[in-house]
Nucleic acid binder design. Structure first.
Lengths: 348, 348
DNA sequence: CTGAAAGCGCTAACAG
DNA sequence: CTGTTAGCGCTTTCAG
């Protein structure tokens, strides 16, 4: 691989000049410029990114921390992130933490601030202290989908109003006449989906129903989790006419459970999810869900991160400044498909 | 961020010594060793990867080229790749080509041989010439799932015997008594799934059926593609009792089409796929499919790539050496789930 | 067993 | 407008 020096030699100029034409900085005469360009083309020169990174003191990659890229939601997000990054000349490194904070820390220690200029965090179950630490070490961190815009995490983040997503889903069921609604929350009791469930509780409370009486189950955020939870819920409460779910994967699982119990969806049971992943469109019946602006969130996250990278001055100096930036995406919106319907006659 | 020099100063040694203890090379006295280790811990030193890359002349990342990481098969593969890489101290960069050779080339030009030491290619629709070019520039390339072990591509690859996968799927249907079987091939006529279809043709030919008479449709390798193809096939040939599909996504789509046509799976129609992606387990009915050793393929691909990286001598010198390495994974195997069943009575 | 010195490929001041 | 001079942080001979 030819180096910049060789190009310079070939063009009869100094490395500095080549560097200048290469990136449009400094003033270079049109004649030399052409000569250099020709030499570059002739030798097939390509800049050596690590060398550039070293000289510039900034790395050409961003790390995306996820628990597992195989989780069906992440790739859609990662795709959007990568596209946004590429437009800005950065590359994307995928870091699977397997939900293990130790693994996450190991990653951060290795690449944050060296190979990667910044870190995007997507539900990777990382230790917040580790993230603050990496910030202090000079690598900005952005949380990609913070659940509660009103309750900032003390770390820069892109927030989605998931509470309103929960509300929208619940209201939709209420409007269809459902009164006995079960809830499946795709995380631990105090987990990340709490805001979605809060929205649900608000909405059914506002409708005059006893939110506390609505059966709820916490379960892992997976198809299987939703399946098991739905089975349990429907056996314990055969009179339920609808299931509210804090995520699409569990919703899909719930639909399978319904099928296995011989319940027709939406004839006997309505099911609603949140997120609108691809699978939601493709399932049969197609899933009614509250769409979350994934691409927008990805773009905001990238923009925010790069902004923080450019403005090192604005980074937290010490433990003092807890006024981290919060970007909020546009609002989630309901997408009615085939998994929800009017409550069946006499089901109250 | 503290540098190696600072650590050296703190420990009262030279950078070279720190470098040596850092990576267990060279001989370092136990006393100094401890002193250095302490300094490292005290300062929170972490090696600067790009600097190391520059000095060593080798980059710490591998690029994975895919058409879109959002394709449900790729993340499963990418996860396995990333795990294998991490064990060997490399990081994974995701490159989405959107199926566009131009984009692919742009990626290769930018990172192959500079930021990334090697390239893994997964159906990214890249120009083989571009790949040979990157090889010549010093960045080994490995094709991740070559379809025809007997027909090597002239580039190092991990091959999977997809022909036998097609055979297994077909034989399974035949054993269940199916005789009127439609085929849905998830790619263009001369596309990557040809081997799978060849296996199918062989098997039904061997069973004494007229393979040429079996209805076949080519379609994009997506759920929608399979859905549309199945609809068309079933309308044109209402007497079909089974559908062979070259991939799971189209198979899933075919099941949806069956549902929409009021056909019970497997009662009225059996459907079989190839790959065994996660969704295959989770669909209702669960998809019978031929499992492909994804994780094994990922590990072999990584091992092969790193081997090629370590052995620069063995790289193709010019256009001469077309004896590129081919690794074959263990054989695909049938996984019977719920989407296939005995042919229905009197259906011949 | 440890130190000194050179250089990886590139950028960034500053001089001319 | 272009050349000179220093590094960026690390590894790696080669001496001592």
């Amino acid at each position: 691989m030819p180096t910049l020096n060789e190009v310079a030699a070939a063009a009869g100029v100094t490395p500095a000049t080549v560097s200048n034409v290469l990136r449009g900085k400094g003033r270079v005469g049109e004649a030399t410029r052409q000569r250099v360009l020709e030499a570059i083309a002739a030798l097939g020169y390509r800049p050596h990114l690590p060398a550039r990174a070293l000289a510039e003191g900034r790395a050409p990659t961003i790390a995306l921390m996820v628990s597992s890229i195989a989780n069906p939601f992440y790739p859609e997000f990662a795709l959007a992130v990568e596209n946004a990054l590429r437009r800005r000349g950065q590359f994307l490194i995928i870091c699977n933490t397997a939900g293990d904070p130790q693994t996450g820390r190991a990653y951060l220690d290795q690449i944050a601030g060296t190979l990667s200029e910044g870190v995007l965090v997507m539900n990777a179950n990382l230790d917040f202290e580790d993230l603050r630490m990496t910030e202090l070490r000079g690598a900005p961190v952005v949380l990609c989908m913070w659940e509660r815009p009103l309750d900032p995490p003390g770390l820069p983040c892109v927030a989605v109003d998931f509470r309103s997503a929960g509300e929208l889903a619940a209201k939709h069921l209420l409007e269809l006449g459902h009164r006995r609604i079960g809830a499946i929350v795709g995380s631990k009791v105090y987990g990340i989906h709490a805001a979605r469930y809060d929205g649900f509780v608000d909405a059914i409370g506002a409708a005059g129903l006893d939110a506390a009486a609505a059966p709820v189950l916490y379960t892992p955020d997976t198809t299987q989790g939703g399946y098991a939870a739905a089975l349990e819920l429907l056996k314990a409460h055969p009179d339920l006419t609808a299931l509210f779910t804090t995520n699409d994967l569990p919703a899909l699982g719930a639909m399978q459970a319904a099928a296995d119990l011989g319940l027709a969806v939406p004839g006997d049971l309505s099911v609603v999810g949140i997120t609108d992943i691809q699978l939601a469109r493709e399932s049969r019946p197609a899933l009614t869900t509250v769409a979350v602006p994934t691409v927008e969130a990805a773009e905001l996250a990238v923009a925010l991160l790069l902004e923080l990278i450019e403005a090192p001055a604005a980074r937290p100096q010490a433990a003092g400044e807890r006024e981290a930036r919060v970007c909020v995406t546009s609002a989630p919106h309901l997408i009615v498909r085939a998994s929800t319907g009017q409550v069946r006659e006499g089901s109250l």
